[in-house]
Design a protein around this nucleic acid. Structure first.
Lengths: 231, 231
DNA sequence: GTCCGGCGTCAGGCTCGCGTCAGGGTCATG
DNA sequence: CATGACCCTGACGCGAGCCTGACGCCGGAC
């Protein structure tokens, strides 16, 4: 089932879109601000994003850039502003389509089908460079730029839990991800203080990815809060 | 250089578009009717089609269907008619975008960049070499480079299920394919943990294709996640 | 200076997932 | 009916990955 992330701060718009999309048996995820949109997109990996440009916190174009820094997920922009260069800016920032409010719902659905039709493989993603390694999100692998002793371009083996944590961090570059979010990702947000757990895996990740594990440059820890991925 | 096929029967529109596009160093090819559009597209293989719906001979939607019957080239529809269901019909027939006349030229150029940006333009490899075998996807067969004892260039016999799994892996070289994806391919993603199932078939594939089945070099397993084809 | 909470690191037990062999069931074919 | 080929399930050993406990370090509070 196709999962759609609806980003809008007007409740009635969100409600109308949700009802319409669910009636077409789409799965709907909601965000009401730009920052929330980036966080939710990272955690739920939607197949399409419906993005309103008039958000309270971030500029819509910055939201598009934030998404495009790690994913190729199709983005359709909804906007009341049809003047000026916002259309061109949004499209050039990486949006796939631009629909002006008020929009015909059938047209929106048709455009939605058009952009999803072209991207059948779900969430294609880009790669992120970390030190001497390249994290390839779509392939779920980490490769080294330098070949090893035997001349093979060997990569790094990551365990499922390590990968889950790394992916959540990398998909939100620069943003602080709380311990709770990280623990929720690996299904351990239920009981007590499990931060020890996290430290264990972060340690392993640093040992596998950081040149100097004791002096991390990309997997930064924010004491008392959580962790942050620094590109 | 990006080649654009402009299809319109109004000379002044064609002229204006041609000048604008050539100024952006696009290559421009012209057709003034539906039939001509199909013929020109076939022989010049453009990278994008700008299609006016109000053509004298064929219905615009039929032109789209005609193109889509053999090519995935991006199509942007230009139209003066913004009423009715023509938008939905055109998009569902295979158009990638729909712009209503009169249009802002900067917006059109931005949409043009948006659809070409997403265009795959990649040709898939049809046969893959793995060890001493060659996997020929279109022929659905695996042949050995070395002839057998009797001098015949014997191939490897794969069962339907084995082929389904191998094809899914080989079609995405280097990418990790999750257990769920693999099980879904062979129609067993419905209930419970069927990973045992997978292991069975992967084992058989390795015994048939890998020089050392216990030390696989191409059909790699990623514990807890899935499998990966390594070219 | 002393206490204390949070973090990094190491070590070890234990479960889980993987590979492998073996055997039974089903369907098409001779 | 007999005979394969193929699909599917069970059992078992083993190693990897998970989870927990313990210890040292550092910075801030008092």
């Amino acid at each position: 089932m196709t999962r759609i992330l609806v980003v809008d701060d007007e409740p009635q718009i969100v409600r109308a879109l949700t009802i319409t999309l669910k009636a077409r048996s789409y799965e709907v995820v909601i965000a009401v601000s730009g920052r929330q949109a980036l966080a939710v997109a990272a955690q739920s990996s939607p197949d399409l994003v419906l993005l309103d440009l008039g958000l309270p916190d971030l500029d819509g174009v910055d939201v598009i850039r934030g998404l495009r820094s790690w994913t190729k997920v199709p983005i359709i922009v909804l906007s009341g502003r049809n003047q000026g260069t916002s259309k061109v800016d949004a499209l050039d920032a990486g949006a796939d389509d631009y629909v002006t409010k008020p929009f015909n719902i059938d047209e929106l659905l048709a455009r939605l089908r058009a952009v999803t039709r072209r991207a059948p493989s779900g969430t294609e993603a880009l790669s992120v460079v970390v030190g001497e390694f390249t994290i390839e999100l779509p392939d779920r692998r980490v490769t080294s730029c330098k070949p090893d002793d035997e001349g093979e371009p060997a990569g790094v083996r990551l365990t499922p839990t390590e990968w889950q944590l790394l992916e959540l961090l990398v998909r939100q570059p620069g943003r602080l991800v709380t311990q709770r979010e990280l623990l929720k990702e690996i299904g351990r947000a239920d009981v007590g203080d499990q931060s020890h757990y996290l430290r264990q895996f972060m340690n392993q990740l640093r040992r596998k990815l950081e040149p100097e594990p004791s002096r991390p440059r990309h997997l930064m820890t924010e004491p008392g809060m959580g962790y942050r991925f620094q590109p």
